[in-house]
């Protein structure tokens, strides 16, 4: 009895270690890229003093948290073989409505946050409903909701930000739990929950199955439409969460918030090694992808690079990262065929 128990315990520990080693192996290329980027920034005379400070590191993590919320949902969506373009607009609407709930309707803070998250969930459910019940491509469906939601945010706000000046409002985006920024704590929770869903639940397996071969999934008796519905709802939920965190950090709900955020999220997912054709990908990779983009942004700012050029550099880095991965895959296949 004892022996069995101890063996089991050992094997959980071993499994965790194995998981970590596997994660290192899977993401070796981008982990090296991230480390190189960090080393460069910490030896560069201009950024040396500012980069490796606790304040700056937390700052970077705070900034990338919204992108990584979206990217967690987006990883699921892309593994499913879909795409969700509506998450950027959802940030705006959920932030505006949450801020509005406090300022215009005097709801307590907690209720306002719930409103924001539910707005995201609702948009996700709408996407999920249409995508799972019809064969309209997700690209088109979410392109439409992207515009609808963005429009609604402008309509609700009349185009100007909804300012919130209470101190408590800032807690979720700009505050701290202990000495750790609140969004970073939330991010850790989100990463764990998403990883658990993908790796430990039936739903996770079904997502890989549908993304890998949806017709086979149908033949397997998997309720494909249920899986799709869940994934888009989850992505919406994540966008709602990102919306309130961002609105809190900016002291206001802004209809222009989250513009292009869906593209940053897709970039993090793809740099993280998830296949755009579905069926393959890991949250662990997305985390590194998001970190690379975040550190790069931060570095370019510290180096005082013109913000117009920042776009060019960011684009080039994304292309490079994906290109390296492509070469690696090519070589792997070649060895196998030979």
């Amino acid at each position: 009895m004892d022996r069995v128990a101890s063996r089991n315990k050992k094997s959980t520990g071993a499994l965790l270690l194995n998981g970590f080693v596997q994660w290192l192996k899977d993401n070796l290329g981008i982990i090296i890229a991230l480390v190189v980027l960090c080393v460069l920034l910490s030896v560069n005379p201009i950024t040396q003093k500012s980069f490796l400070t606790m304040k700056n590191i937390f700052n970077v993590l705070r900034q990338i948290s919204t992108n990584l919320f979206l990217a967690c949902g987006m990883t699921m969506v892309i593994i499913l073989g879909g795409i969700d373009l509506s998450v950027g607009s959802t940030i705006a609407l959920s932030g505006c409505l949450a801020a509005g709930a406090v300022v215009r309707y005097n709801l307590p803070l907690g209720a306002a946050l719930v409103v924001g998250v539910l707005v995201g969930l609702f948009i996700g459910i709408c996407n999920g409903f249409v995508i799972s019940k019809t064969t309209i491509p997700p690209f088109i469906v979410t392109l439409a909701t992207m515009n609808i939601v963005k429009g609604l945010a402008y309509v609700y706000t009349g185009g100007s930000p909804v300012r919130v000046v209470t101190k408590e409002w800032q807690f979720i985006g700009a505050g701290y739990i202990g000495s750790v920024p609140t969004p970073v704590v939330i991010l850790i929770v989100v990463l764990i929950v998403t990883t658990l869903i993908m790796n430990k639940t039936k739903m996770g397996r079904y997502i890989y199955a549908v993304g890998g071969n949806s017709q086979a999934a149908e033949f397997s008796g998997i309720k494909v439409s249920k899986v799709k519905f869940f994934v888009y709802a989850y992505s919406g939920l994540m966008a709602g969460l990102a919306g309130i965190v961002l609105a809190s950090r900016m002291y206001s709900g802004q209809p222009t918030a989250g513009e292009g955020a869906e593209m940053d999220a897709i970039a993090a997912v793809v740099v993280g090694g998830t296949s755009m054709s579905g069926g393959y990908g890991k949250i662990g990779g997305t985390l590194i992808g998001g970190l690379i983009i975040g550190v790069l942004n931060n570095g370019l700012n510290l180096l005082n690079v013109n913000s117009f050029w920042q776009y060019v550099i960011k684009g080039a880095v994304i292309l490079l990262a994906v290109f390296i991965d492509y070469i690696r895959q090519e070589n792997k296949d070649k060895i196998k065929i030979k």
Binding site: Y208, A209, G212, A216, S220
Partner: peptide
């Protein structure tokens, strides 16, 4: 190929999906 297998997934994944 079309109706059955999850090609990039392992034998383990494919054997236990049901």
């Amino acid at each position: 190929k079309v109706e059955g297998l999850y090609h990039i997934q392992s034998v383990r994944f494919n054997s236990t999906i049901e």
